[in-house]
């Protein structure tokens, strides 16, 4: 498989705190991989760096062989790297369909036309179609702020995928989804993404979900990569069991009630 994204010795510090270091990852076209690690292990920092939100202190990011260092988020997005957010980043006071229409409009026009009407039937059709793929078309005309967290997470992801990205980062897609719905939720998600040839990297705390949906897993610990490989191998790795899954178990248990 082709490597589409490669990072070399990626490092990020905040003052004296090292948030991430020695991050070397290769992501192949179309693959699905899980990322595990406790809070503060550097997972989101990694995603923020690759998507241009946070400039790395040092290291290299190569996307299809070209350096992405110094490019702004919007340019990286246009090149085909998209992401969702742990807390859905939506246009709260607008309806679901308007959120999608804005996403589509931006995807279609690098510089938004000033007087040409933004909305036409064709675009609305595409918006509905995208919503249907994620099973949320029935909420199309609700205001986003009034919807439940799980639905907002799906809208967030649906918006990230309108541009048919080659690489998609999902930042804790199942957080805020109740425990017994997580499996089904993730199923819908992966199914919706399967139709395209998108490589998906998802951050997840629930090991059952990781096992069920990703053939490959990367484990983060204290800002660096502890293990990277086939899921069965990584999840049985001693260090991973001790430093990541051990803490994950408590974390999951703690937050279950909140979700």
């Amino acid at each position: 498989m082709d490597v589409i994204l490669e990072t070399r010795d990626l490092k990020r510090t905040f003052g004296a705190v090292v948030a991430a270091h020695n991050i070397n990852i290769r992501i192949h076209a179309g693959e699905v991989m899980g990322v595990i690690g406790s809070n503060g292990a550097g997972k989101t920092t990694f995603v923020n760096m690759v998507t241009g939100y946070l400039p790395p202190s040092s290291g290299e990011i190569l996307y299809r062989g070209k350096s992405m260092i110094g490019l702004p988020t919007r340019v990286i997005t246009r090149k085909g790297i998209a992401r969702s957010f742990q807390i859905p980043q939506l246009f709260q006071e607008l309806t679901v369909i308007d959120n999608m229409l804005i996403a589509l409009t931006i995807a279609d026009n690098p510089a938004p036309p000033v007087f040409k009407p933004a909305i036409d039937r064709r675009l609305e059709g595409r918006a509905i179609e995208a919503l249907e793929r994620f099973g949320i078309a029935q909420h199309a005309h609700r205001e986003v702020g009034t919807l439940a967290q799980g639905i907002r997470k799906l809208i967030d992801i649906a918006m990230a995928t309108v541009s048919d990205p080659a690489l998609l980062f999902l930042d804790e897609p199942t957080s805020g989804v109740s425990a017994d719905e997580k499996m089904e939720f993730m199923g819908t998600l992966i199914e919706a993404l399967k139709s395209s040839d998108t490589a998906v990297l998802f951050i997840e705390h629930d090991m059952e979900i990781v096992e069920a949906f990703s053939p490959r897993v990367v484990a983060f610990y204290e800002g660096t990569i502890l293990a990277d490989g086939p899921t069965a191998e990584v999840l049985t790795n001693d260090k991973v069991r001790e430093f990541v899954i051990g803490t994950e178990f408590h974390r999951t248990a703690d937050t279950e009630g909140v979700a």
């Binding site: 702004p72 988020t73 919007r74 340019v75 998209a82 992401r83 541009s163």
Partner: peptide, 8 residues
């Protein structure tokens, strides 16, 4: 989100 959708 606007930036993450690819607009300036």
């Amino acid at each position: 989100r606007v930036e993450y959708l690819g607009a300036s």
